[in-house]
Amino acid sequence: MSVKEGSSNGFIERLESLRGVAALWVAVGHSMIWLVIGSETAIWSKRVWEVHGVQANLARALITFFSGAAAVDIFFVLSGFVLARSLAGAVLNPASYVQFVVRRLFRIIPAFWFSLLVVLLYLTVLYPGHAVMPGASEWFNHWYADPLSVKAVLENATFVSPWLNPNAWTLKVEILASLLLPLIVWCIGAKGMQGSAARSTLVLVGTAALAWFYRDAPSDLAHYVYMFVVGALVARHGGAVRQGLLESNVFVVGCVMLVVLASACYPLIHPLYADVMVVAGSAGIICALSRGSQAKALAILGTGWARFLGRISYSFYLLHFIALYATGTVLLHLLPSEIVIRWPLAVMVAGCLISIALAVPLALLAFNWVEKPFTLIGRRVSIMQAGVVRQ
């Protein structure tokens, strides 16, 4: 969700830039794991100090600072914050709930279906066919090994399977969490409401307990719902944090380092302890940005490229994987296997740059011709649907 869309309390540009930076993390993170590096076949499943070899260590260091797993957590906390702000002061009733859900579906699904169309065009027109290529990682070889079928397309379009676009599992979590957000916001209570702090604590503890029970289910909503709650709590109670603390570079850098440490000390597969560290760090960053902090450590989010990437971040997030997969497939067919096996880091860096260069214009096209128009349609449809419910 764009930070602008649905926010009734004003547009915070640097929060949108944060989403763009997080989308770039996912792109770089994926770009560093599609080849085997020496004896390391899955560097994302190991801690930094468990990886061996110069190239493998450099790649693991890159995905420590560009962690796709951490980026997903940031997305979820940020969504909880933005959606809670958009619901501030709203009365929870069937009409307002329908209005909210319709807007969310029109915001998320059309761009996702467009990404599936791009994938299908690639697989049916340009894809040379699946083959296990020398040097490719198990993660890369896993995708598109099965024959394309109508059943597979329907399962992907309805979020039953993420086979065509592996990022789809996060959209399923996002949609299900969005269905719960109005209830979560109501449970937390409005600012200044008597007992709001106690209610907020109860909701956070309850959803954190749910995450603990589902800690071994890293694609399940129960594993992540507390992240949306944390975002909503920042929206509700962030104003109580001292502005001087939020202006401190030490505080902001500390929040960033918490995210980086989680990515260094744990495998990048959403272990609960790592997620909690990332959520805490991202909550602090979001709180600082929402309060207008001018800490120098946040200056990067005010740059032109960050603002641009923030605007197209959702489409970029959806489309980069197919650009990377297509780029990787071409490189594996063009380059001698000896080069791929001996210099995998250099090949992956080249693939990263090429795939980002391909994904950015495609994402800009999707943003202008799919995201924006369907977001506006969703607003109009939600108003009509709300009127029908009231009647």
Rank of each mutant, 00 (worst) to 15 (best):
P218R: 14
K296S: 09
D220R: 05
V28Q: 13
P94F: 02
S382K: 13
V241N: 05
F112N: 03
V51F: 05
R85P: 04
A299F: 04
N156C: 13
R104F: 14
G29C: 09
M227W: 10
R342T: 07
F367P: 00
N156F: 06
V260L: 13
W49H: 08
L246R: 07
N368R: 12
W34T: 02
G10N: 07
G254Y: 01
P162L: 05
V132Q: 14
M257A: 15
L364S: 08
Y273G: 05
V132T: 07
G304L: 01
L353N: 05
W25M: 08
V234N: 09
A88H: 00
K46H: 09
G302Y: 04
N9S: 14
A90D: 13
L180G: 04
P267A: 07
P361R: 12
E16S: 10
L233Y: 09
I285Q: 08
I354P: 09
A217T: 03
W163P: 00
F316Y: 12
V234I: 00
Y273F: 06
W212G: 09
R390G: 00
G68L: 04
T303G: 15
L78N: 07
L18N: 03
I383R: 15
G20V: 00
W369T: 07
P271N: 09
Y97A: 01
T375P: 12
A232I: 01
R291Y: 05
L345R: 03
L298D: 12
L331P: 10
R104G: 15
S17Y: 10
V360P: 06
L183Y: 15
V360E: 11
L121Q: 08
V260N: 10
F114M: 07
I188Q: 09
W49C: 01
A56Y: 01
A95E: 05
V26T: 06
S96Y: 05
P361V: 03
V388T: 08
G244R: 05
W369D: 02
L376K: 11
F76R: 10
S115R: 08
L298A: 11
F140M: 13
V229C: 09
S137I: 03
R236G: 04
L345S: 04
L202Y: 02
T124G: 10
V360I: 13
W25K: 02
L298W: 11
V252M: 15
S137W: 13
L87N: 01
E247I: 00
V370S: 04
I12D: 12
F66S: 03
Y224E: 09
